[in-house]
Each structure stands twice: as structure tokens, then as C-alpha cells.
Design a protein around this nucleic acid. Structure first.
Length: 273
DNA sequence: AGTGGCTCCTGAGCGC
DNA sequence: TGCGCTCAGGAGCCAC
């Protein structure tokens, strides 16, 4: 599932392959919920436009086009945007093909949870889902004070707080569990019970985990691929996610697996407290 | 206001 | 072999 490091990897590989290219035409194969406007209108708006820049906010990818329109993509669980230098056959779950002056870009999504919307670039900052987002964890301006302040407003468990995109943008189930393990904090801890020293540990862990995730070009636990169709490698470095019942890589005790904040959560009772 | 539960959707994995 | 069940989950929405 594309979280911040995966979306960032998609952004980088897309920019490398498609920046400055022209959209010749678009084939819409499935458009019911994924695209916010009727398919023909969507295709008409993008036809003949150049891909000018790529940005990312949390798990959202922002593609700037030459007509003053920004395409905002959220991949949710299984969304993919893959560039092929040559004409490439459609697969069962391809929803749209952007035919470029050189190569083509395929948007596919097995579970159909992904969303694409078009907004005027000038108003991209006003899009409700983006406005609500909390700070960017990799932004230089993001401090542990800021994290502490965001967390102080939350009740519930720290796991729920980390998944809340208004607290901090870009964490999903994988990186939330990994950051908590690294910080040595139990996911079920009440957010308000965290000491300043623990918030500093958590702040550093989030930063490191996301950086390492990007360096590994993301986590391909199952479906994730970057814009060149390649898998990431961070799944090899996971300490807890997807490892319930297995030995903790830190202490050797079996890892716990429990639903917290409605998400499967894996943690170590010995290494986290 | 904050929280918990439901919904969308498909494929994988399991037991029988 | 194949059926039917359960699970995986981001975020929007609703009820309390």
C-alpha cells in the first residue's frame, strides 16, 4: 500500500521518465468512482497538455500540467501509475492509459479504492483533503515540538494518532508500526501518556524509518510497484509489520498481533513499553 | 468533539 | 478441484 516512501518513489521515477512529455490522448477503461468527472471531460481537459512538475503531499501525488491544471492522485491500497516506453498491453485492472508523445502511462488499481481528481493549480492549496493534512514529517520545518503539539490534542492510542493524517501526513499501517517499534513504544499506549523523551524518540524514529523507506525505494509487501514497474526492497528490513507470531528480530520473543484502531498491529511486548 | 463502525473492492489463503 | 469463508486496508461518512 503506497505510504509516503512509496508515493515519493513513484514521484521520483515518474519525474525521471515523463517530465516534459506531452499527453497525446487518454483512453478511459473504467471511470466510475476513481475519476471525479466524466471520462470524456477528463480526457478532453488533459489532451495536448505537457507534464510540467511533480509534487507530493502526504500520500497524495500532485502532477502539474501545462494548462494550469493539477492532477491529484491517491493510490490508496493497490493503485499504480506505471510508465512504459513502448506500447504495452492492458491488464485486467488498467483503468486509464495516458498516451504520451513518447511511451505511455498506465493507471491501474485492483481494488478500485484509488482516486484521481483534477483541480486548477492555483486552487490546489484549497483542496479539502490536502488542507486537512498535518505536517510533512520529512520537511525541515517539522520539529519534535510540532509533533508533540499535534499529539497533545489527541486522546486515544498512539497508533490511531499516527494513522491520523491530520496529525502527521503520510504514515500508514506499515510505517506506523515500524516507527513505534523503533521508538520502543507500545502501540496501545494512550497518546497523552507519552513523556517528552518518548516523543523525541518517536519523532526521530518516524524520520529515520521514512528516509530508509525512500532509500529502499519503498516496501513491496504485495502489490506496490514504482512508476518503472519495479519493486521496492524495504520489506526486507521490516521488524514487525506482517510478522505477527514470528520471532522479534530484537529479542527473539514472539511478536504480538492485535487489532488496534481498526488495523492489524504487530509489536513486541519485550522491546516496546 | 471525538470515536467507533461501516463501506468501497478484489485476490489470497485457508478449511473442508 | 473447487467452493465458501475470512482477511487485508485508506479515508470518507454516519451515528452516537
Amino acid at each position: 500500500m503506497p505510504e509516503l516512501p512509496e508515493v515519493e518513489s513513484i514521484r521520483l521515477t515518474l519525474a525521471k521518465n515523463t517530465l516534459g512529455k506531452k499527453i497525446i490522448h487518454i483512453k478511459i477503461l473504467w471511470s466510475s468512482a476513481a475519476i471525479s468527472i466524466p471520462g470524456y471531460e477528463f480526457a478532453e481537459l488533459l489532451k495536448g497538455k505537457f507534464i510540467e512538475n511533480f509534487d507530493r503531499r502526504g500520500k497524495y501525488l500532485l502532477i502539474g500540467l501545462s494548462n494550469g491544471i493539477t492532477m491529484i492522485v491517491h493510490f490508496r491500497m493497490t493503485g499504480r501509475l506505471i510508465y512504459y516506453p513502448e506500447i504495452h498491453p492492458l491488464d485486467k485492472h488498467t483503468h486509464a492509459v495516458f498516451c504520451l508523445d513518447e511511451g505511455e502511462l498506465h493507471y491501474s488499481d485492483i481494488r478500485k479504492f484509488g482516486r484521481i481528481q483534477l483541480v486548477p493549480t492555483a486552487k490546489a492549496g484549497e483542496v479539502a483533503s490536502l488542507v486537512k493534512l498535518g505536517p510533512e514529517p520529512l520537511d525541515e520545518a517539522f520539529s519534535f515540538d510540532q509533533l508533540g503539539q499535534s499529539l497533545s490534542k489527541k486522546k486515544g492510542t498512539i497508533k490511531a494518532a499516527l494513522l491520523d493524517q491530520t496529525v502527521i501526513a503520510g504514515l500508514g499501517n506499515i510505517y506506523a508500526d515500524e516507527a513505534l517499534f523503533r521508538a520502543g513504544i507500545l502501540p496501545e499506549r494512550n497518546t497523552r501518556s507519552l513523556k517528552v523523551s518518548e516523543i523525541i524518540l518517536l519523532y526521530n524514529s518516524i524520520y529515520e524509518i521514512l528516509r530508509e523507506g525512500i532509500d529502499a525505494r519503498g516496501t513491496s509487501f504485495r502489490d506496490y510497484r514504482d512508476a518503472e514497474g519495479n519493486r521496492g526492497s524495504f520489506q526486507e528490513s521490516l521488524m514487525v509489520y506482517g510478522r505477527g507470531g514470528q520471532e522479534c528480530k530484537g529479542c527473539g520473543n514472539p511478536l504480538e498481533r492485535k487489532k488496534i484502531a481498526g488495523r492489524t498491529t504487530v509489536f513486541c511486548l519485550h522491546c516496546q513499553r
